[in-house]
């Protein structure tokens, strides 16, 4: 982890694979092929992939696909998944309506 990936490294051309149409991110409906292509488009970090394709940015916030996406990107880059920094963790950790998040009431009546 935290290893700087050398961006000048040649990872070869995008080669289509038979399972490229496999859905990986269930919420945003992103396929394996799209993720692999994104790597060849220069998106080498999980954060870049997320912003480029919206993987893991849907309702579940990557609960299901984070590990899968990491594996696909790592394989495409020829590195171990452990070398990829996971996505930034930030609040809110679960889906929450804007009106609730925005309210942030301080209440002492919980008990």
């Amino acid at each position: 982890m935290n290893q700087i990936v050398d961006r000048s490294r040649d990872i070869g051309e995008f080669v289509p694979q038979p399972d490229d149409d496999m859905l990986v991110c269930r919420c945003e409906e992103v396929t394996k092929g799209e993720i692999r292509k994104a790597v060849h488009d220069g998106m080498w970090t999980i954060t870049e992939i997320r912003r480029y394709l919206r993987t893991g940015m849907g309702l579940c916030q990557g609960q299901t696909c984070a590990r899968l996406v990491k594996g696909i990107v790592a394989r495409e880059l020829g590195i171990s998944p452990a070398q990829l920094e996971p996505a930034t963790a930030r609040s809110p950790m679960r889906p929450i309506e804007m009106k609730v998040l925005g309210k942030e009431e301080v209440s002492d009546t919980w008990q």
Binding site: S91, P92, R94, I96, K99, V100, L101, K103, E104, E105, V106, S107, W110
Partner: peptide, 11 residues
């Protein structure tokens, strides 16, 4: 710690 309970968010 930020906690959501019902329609409230508290710190």
């Amino acid at each position: 710690v930020v906690v959501r309970r019902g329609d409230e968010v508290s710190h």
